[in-house]
Amino acid sequence: MPKAKVTFADIGITLTVPAGTRLIEVSERVGAAITYGCREGECGTCLTQVLAGAEHLADPSVLEDQVLKNMFAPRGHRLACQAQVLDGEVVVKPA
């Protein structure tokens, strides 16, 4: 199965995950400070800054895009409950 690497910069932990993993599936397990609200891509609580490897995340859905717009999220920001890691190396931290 294809793998990818995710680094949670706030706690300095890197882990290998299967392709398609959403950040939400691993961030709480390792104790990263990304905080969740609705967990369904609606509230924007889980806003996360992608420090590197944004191209290795699946494109945002229409809903995620809309929420990011509503929040005026700067470039390079994603919702951790939505963003899926595809391959390569991705570095994130709570926004």
């Binding site: 290998t16 995950v17 397990r29 104790g31």
Partner: peptide
């Protein structure tokens, strides 16, 4: 945690 996730993958 890295090893655990790898083991689960």
């Amino acid at each position: 945690p890295g090893e655990l996730c790898a083991a689960a993958a």
